[in-house]
Simulated scan of single mutants.
Amino acid sequence: MTSEEWDEFLGHFERRKLALGDCGRAYGTDCAHEHACVRCPVLIIHASERPRLVEIRDNLVSRILEAESEGWLGEVEGLQSSLSHANEKLAQLDAQINRKQESVDLGIPAFREIVARATGVAAPPEPS
């Protein structure tokens, strides 16, 4: 690998850092959503950016109201799509945050379960 190829490879990961988190697209692929990241399924939103995502969602609601009052039907359609995706991302992020805050009871193994594992190992056959 040449130094130029290596620089390009490292640069790909630097360019994946976005305002809301990281772009999860594979190395060597272009952005299929023309950097409309709220609509992109491979956007990985950082939990710390939740307030920013809420702000984006609220802004989309305001823009939809303006577009409806002005009769910009094409604009309404595109903004509603973005709003739907922003709401989905927000729900996914909230679910992720909640999962991280929940404790998981792994239980304590009973003595009979521990013994069963220890004695379940077959002894090597006796030489004849």
Rank of each mutant, 00 (worst) to 15 (best):
I114T: 02
V38D: 12
L83M: 07
E68V: 08
G120C: 04
V121H: 10
D22P: 00
G11F: 12
L65A: 10
T119Y: 09
V104M: 13
L106S: 05
P41L: 09
R39D: 01
V54Y: 13
E4P: 02
D94P: 01
N87G: 12
I64Q: 08
G21F: 04
H46F: 02
A116W: 03
E126K: 14
A123G: 05
K89G: 03
G71Q: 09
Q92G: 11
H12V: 06
R52L: 03
E102C: 02
R99Q: 05
G107D: 11
R57I: 00
N98H: 13
G74F: 04
L53W: 13
N87L: 15
W6T: 14
R63C: 05
I97V: 10
S3M: 12
E66D: 14
R39V: 00
E102S: 10
A118C: 06
F13V: 02
L18F: 04
L93P: 09
R52Y: 00
S82C: 07
P109Q: 08
F9S: 10
E113I: 02
I45S: 05
S103H: 12
E77C: 02
R112G: 03
R52I: 00
E14R: 14
E68C: 01
E5M: 03
W6I: 14
E88T: 06
S103N: 13
P124C: 02
K100W: 04
E113D: 15
N59Q: 15
A123Q: 12
A95T: 08
E102K: 12
E4F: 04
D58L: 01
Q96C: 01
G28I: 02
R112F: 03
I56N: 12
E8F: 00
V115H: 04
W6Q: 15
E34R: 15
V61Q: 13
Q101P: 02
I44R: 10
G28K: 08
G28F: 03
L53A: 06
R52S: 04
L18P: 07
V115D: 05
E70I: 05
R112P: 02
A19T: 15
S82T: 11
N87R: 15
E5C: 01
R39E: 04
W72E: 15
N59C: 05
E66A: 12
K89W: 02
S103A: 09
E75S: 13
